[in-house]
Amino acid sequence: MVDREHFITDLNKKKEAAWLQLYEEFYPALCAYAAKLTHENAGVEDIVQECMVGLWDSALQFPNIKALAAWLYKAVYSRALNLIRDRDNSRRLLENYTSELTWSEEMAIELAIEESVIAKLRLVLADLSEQQRAIMNLSLEGYKVREIAQTLNISENTVKMQKKRAYAIVRERMGEIWGVLLATIFFNFF
């Protein structure tokens, strides 16, 4: 979100900081995505790691982050399909096999978009302090200022103040437009 162009050029040059950022931004989302596709959470981290290692060993160069996201989600999708196919072939031999999973490319893309949204929301929350995050989590669950203050055993004023600080941090990270948008969510929720 900050310094997007540098991130991509550094990533193409395989610089450490950029790769750590790549993991931070994409890894959890890709794992959750693979878990949804394969309908189990065993082995999904291996799928994602194989894609990442494949990317590291390749000479691929990405023009922008859009292309990077497309490549990552598509790579996980095709590996997940392979896993489903192998697993189903072996399970068909067992009697208790009851369902079959199929994913059209269209469904897979929709699912990837969902997971990507959640990933971005996660990054917004990750920048906040623990108390701010607790406040934000409770407000995401639909609690009011008074209820949050009671749950966390802090004053209503602290809740309001922390909310303002969190808002400032998010604005700094996401840029001015995001800040304006977030103002709405913060004031709606609290």
Binding site: W19, L20, Y23, E24, Y27, P28, A29, C31, A32, A35, E45, V48, Q49, M52, V53, W56, E114, E115, I118, A119, L121, R122, L125, N137, L140, E141, G142
Partner: peptide, 27 residues
Amino acid sequence: PDKLNNRLQQQFQYNPFLAYQKLKKHR
């Protein structure tokens, strides 16, 4: 909000930093 929070929790269970350490081992 409840669904969003659930989905967030699902992503939180995967640790990107541990995974990055594994990539470093591969390198």
